[in-house]
Amino acid sequence: ILELRLVQATLFKNVLEAISDLFSKANFDFSGTGLELQAMDTSHVALVALLLRAEAFNHYLCDRDLSMGLNLADMAKAFRCANNDDIITIKAEEDWSDTVTFTFESPEDGEISIFDFDFVGTNGVPLEIPEFPESEYQAKVRMPSAKFMRICKKLSSFGDSGDRDTVVIISVDKECVNFFTRGKTGTSTIVCRQTQTVDKPKEPTLIEMKEQVSLAFDLRYMNSFSKGSTLSDQVTISLSSNLPAVFEYKIAETGYIRYYMLPRIEE
């Protein structure tokens, strides 16, 4: 039997908001250790992996591993009906009838909404994703997630103009990270210097660089990744010319959301 409870819907609402625009279906793996979610976009360019350990839930009972594909658009619609302080219960019955039940209960007026979701096929996930050693990344940048989101928005407003394929080049050298994009009539560069000020110790921009690196990514994907900012104050971007870039948001002490995307290569 699977039975989970969260006393505040916010966490799950934020997770769905962070993934449902880019990924249409996801694979949810429940086990004794927690929930692992994986999804890939339809063009197989971006992948998201989420871990929520059992401790993230107020009640967690899973006596048999269960893997289910779910439609994220439908789930996001249902979760928009949930208030932030609703109590969520997730249940799947013993007969594994290919449905899972999400219940939202308002602690104020006792109103209960029940949604049953049928399992669906997924886009070739889950995949085995190895933990690449730190040494394989040429650079790592850690910055406030709100700052990263702001940078993506600025670049979009300049570079976008209806073009879905705007490319952003992220370059790291010793003390700064540059985000560069080309618009119709010019270019735009945002330079972020390493900062760690005494008055804002919680909002540093930190750069660890082994060698200079300059990589190209699709801005629209980065824009979607930046929605992870509702789950964490900080984002860590790991860059390598041979590996998928990782945009990681740690979720308190209880897990993470990681977005993966390979850099574009010159033809």
Partner: peptide
């Protein structure tokens, strides 16, 4: 001109 490599192939080949 640059090309996007898909992740699916990458993860299946490592």
């Amino acid at each position: 001109i640059s090309q996007q490599v898909v992740l699916h192939k990458f993860f299946q080949h490592i």
